[in-house]
Write a protein that binds this DNA or RNA. Sequence first.
DNA 1: CCAATGTTCATGCAAACGCATCGACTTTGG
DNA 2: CCAAAGTCGATGCGTTTGCATGAACATTGG
Lengths: 157, 157
Amino acid sequence: MTPPPSADPSRAELAAESWEALFRAQSALLRRFAADDVWDPISLREYDVLFTLSRRPDRRARLRDLNREVLLSQPSLSRMVERLEAAGLVAREPDRADGRGTVVVLTEAGAAMQRTVGRRHTTSIRRYVGPALDDEELRTLRRLCDKLRLAQESIPD
Amino acid sequence: MTPPPSADPSRAELAAESWEALFRAQSALLRRFAADDVWDPISLREYDVLFTLSRRPDRRARLRDLNREVLLSQPSLSRMVERLEAAGLVAREPDRADGRGTVVVLTEAGAAMQRTVGRRHTTSIRRYVGPALDDEELRTLRRLCDKLRLAQESIPD
DNA sequence: CCAATGTTCATGCAAACGCATCGACTTTGG
DNA sequence: CCAAAGTCGATGCGTTTGCATGAACATTGG
């Protein structure tokens, strides 16, 4: 009479539906942001890299560590950093603690770019996310998404 | 003494933090799915197209309507459908009601592919989403994400 | 101590992407 | 009714991406 808890099909469906809702909400918002030209003159992925660096102590990170946070293959990130360096937004230096490593540092111009695009980004978020959910719902959404993401660290490969 | 409600900076921050949490949770999970080779032999975006078609009546949709649901530029979707047709997963036909339109139809092979990949996808979701949140949290997450997405329809450009 | 293994980043290359644009068709307004 | 404007999908083209691989360095185990 009681269904087995770990193989409960309705629970699998529930998880799938929740993921699908998350995925579609994200797509819908990214489309909105793109329509607002939020990212110009850089791309979303480039902004993600600049943003990630801006939150690091000393605004710097190993390429490998950056790659753990950004959804991009290692070669793609390597070339993107190359382009960002050519644009003067980041600098690369060898890692003195590990001869294999490359440290990526946000330049002042890169930090300024992150702030400029970040402000536009925030304006769009206020516009498209703000009216959709009240404060309590926003806090709940943030809490559940953080919980979902952080739980990944304790789930084996 | 009372801050203006529409320009409340803490609310803008809250919305930004919620969006960031959503974005990062999605990235973390997509990375997990990729590591499991969930999508093979098609890509996530291709699966998204097959999945979207599979949920439509008659498993068919105008290219333009597909493009509204998938996060992809119109030319990219056009070429992807071209490739999917070459692979035998979809078929294209002219729209008899509108001479400009192209209707994309999921073939039997395409539906089978969607089911096969969908099952792997569901397995991964159960593995990575299931343990992270309980039933109540899953329902709440789904509700908030749906609300966020659906609210976009009533927010002007 | 050093040979074997693992890790980190860069590069060659083909595939896929977005932007700009075009031709074909539809809709609108006088 | 037709000219003007709008919509839909395809294609040329430069850019970006991922996969496979290589070179340099670090770590491990005997």
